[in-house]
Design a protein around this nucleic acid. Structure first.
Lengths: 328, 328
DNA sequence: CTGTTAGCGCGTTCAA
DNA sequence: TTGAACGCGCTAACAG
């Protein structure tokens, strides 16, 4: 391995001089600079970021913790993060919990050990022990996708999005609306979206039957199963269904099609997330676009601002957009 | 920041002793060990991986270069990589080219600078300058998804997969078969799958009209556009179409549906990749499963074996599986 | 069993 | 304009 020392010897200067041309700092004669650059060119020398980090205490690495990389939301966020971080010479150290909550805590420690300059946590919950750990690691952390009063965060307006979606269905004449949600420990997706739905229904004085409310997990099959329960268990058949993710909605649609239930005539359906498939499925799915990639770039900007200790806004709530398609 | 030195002082031992208990190496008295462990516990000290790496020349980080994180194939591979690497205490440094080929070269350099122990390249081409760069960086590199004689690789049997898929359509009675491919600089997806198709057609003495062969890019819309050209331009209408990816196939299906062309009666269709959507689209798509996650774990095993300089198999070609569904 | 010593590759004073 | 010297936090001989 070729080091700064080798370059110095070959160019007949001291290591300091090499360091100066490398970092463009201090004075260095044109003559010396040229010799050094020539040698660097010839040897293909690349300075060790590790050694540099040891001195500068900056690694230029941002740790990212995500629940899974196999769904569109986190993928888009990471894409956004990557684009923004790259501009500033930062790299991403990726950790994947595969939906194991304990690993969120574990990786927080691990990333600290790796001396990352900051951490982006694509969160699925905001439980106290997680918040506590975040404070404890003593590294800038930005939470994406969940709102929190106690940490920096970039999140979506889940409550109003769900509410507006519900309102839209009502405006289309639906009064019996079913709802497929997820566990409420996921505050954003599980709790807020559900609350938005219920509040809107209540404000319109529309009753909601118990069997209309189903809970799935984050996959297509559970959307299928949820819709099956809605259809078979309900006293009064609803005429529309809101699912908190597009995947759940797509699963629900696949059950309806299998049963020969017409969409949207016999059952309207809407999702949230603007997945790519939502526009190609038949019929195209009404959904809500959250601009996940933008959430990623925003989170990146936040963490960088924090690292360079600029004044920052602690809490960002992004806008959403209702996409109306033929499933309703 | 608390360092090994602080721990040593507080525990009244030398830094070496602390290092010994940290790494469980050499002898250390029970008494000393307990004191050290107690202090570590109290201070919440975590050793700096950076400083360690500087000495050991091992970073326990694997660089990953991928073309995009927004499609299922790379996501699954990364999931597989992550699972295997984690078992061995390795982390992933992620770089995303967003399909910009120049960045593949750039990131190879960057990862070298970061002193990663190995690099996994999820490749979209095997151009000479890429291979040259790989040799030049002098770090173990494993290519995933493309076959190469000159570098370690984990790839799929694209040729036989395409051939078998073609053979299957023929066995279903189709003789006029269209093909939606991609640019052949992508040797695996563009060249080999196409060759498999043509060779099988030829061996069955089935002619292929020029307009049956279309080229798209890696997205759904271009599958739609390709099918439109097939339908509108062809002299003789084909009765089946093979698309080299599921996304292309799904795009093609969306065009057919829009035109009211029945699948599979008027046009059978098959894809490759076993995307999640392939089983939920209507009708469910016949496709080929490549076990991408396994490709990831295999690649991880390869790179680790190489790092620990065990004897390794340079080239791994994974098996595939034909999934027959109603689109044919 | 333990401490001393000597770097790993680099950036940064401080003199010269 | 340059180089010597020091230290970042850690591991690895080598003595003791």
């Amino acid at each position: 391995m070729v080091t700064i020392k080798d370059i110095a010897q070959m160019a007949n200067v001291s290591r300091s001089t090499v360091s100066r041309v490398l970092n463009n700092s201090g004075y260095v004669s044109e003559d010396a600079r040229e010799r050094v650059e020539k040698v660097i060119e010839e040897t293909g020398y690349v300075p060790s970021e590790y050694a540099k980090s040891l001195r500068t205490k900056k690694t230029k690495v941002i740790g990212v913790i995500l629940p899974t990389i196999q769904t569109e939301t986190p993928s888009r966020i990471v894409t956004g993060l990557g684009k923004e971080l790259e501009k500033h010479g930062y790299q991403i150290l990726l950790t994947n919990t595969n939906l194991d909550k304990d690993k969120e805590l574990e990786y927080l420690d691990l990333l600290k050990m790796r001396q990352v300059d900051g951490i982006i946590l694509i969160a699925t919950n905001t439980e106290p022990k997680l918040i506590k750990k975040i404070k404890q690691v003593d590294i800038p952390v930005v939470i994406v996708g969940q709102e929190s009063e106690e940490a920096m965060c970039v999140s979506y307006d889940d409550y109003h999005a769900a509410r507006e979606l519900t309102s839209f269905l009502i405006s289309k004449g639906h009064v019996k609306i079913a709802f497929i949600g997820v566990n409420e420990t996921d505050h954003a997706v599980g709790y807020l979206r559900k609350k938005g739905f219920f509040d809107e229904m209540e404000s319109r004085l529309l009753p909601v039957e118990k069997d209309w409310i189903q809970q799935g997990i984050f996959d297509i099959d559970s959307g299928h199963a949820s819709m099956e329960r809605i259809i078979t268990d309900s006293q009064h058949q609803p005429t529309a269904t809101i699912a908190v993710t597009d995947r759940l909605a797509i699963g629900a649609m696949s059950y309806l099609k299998k049963q020969g239930i017409q969409i949207p005539e016999a059952m309207a359906i809407a999702g949230i997330g603007a997945s790519e498939m939502s526009q190609y499925i038949d019929p195209p799915l009404t959904t809500i676009d959250y601009q996940n990639e933008k959430a990623g770039t925003e989170a990146a900007k936040q963490i960088l601002a924090r690292i360079y200790s600029q004044k920052i806004q602690e809490k960002i709530i992004l806008d959403y957009r209702l996409i109306i398609r033929n499933s309703v």
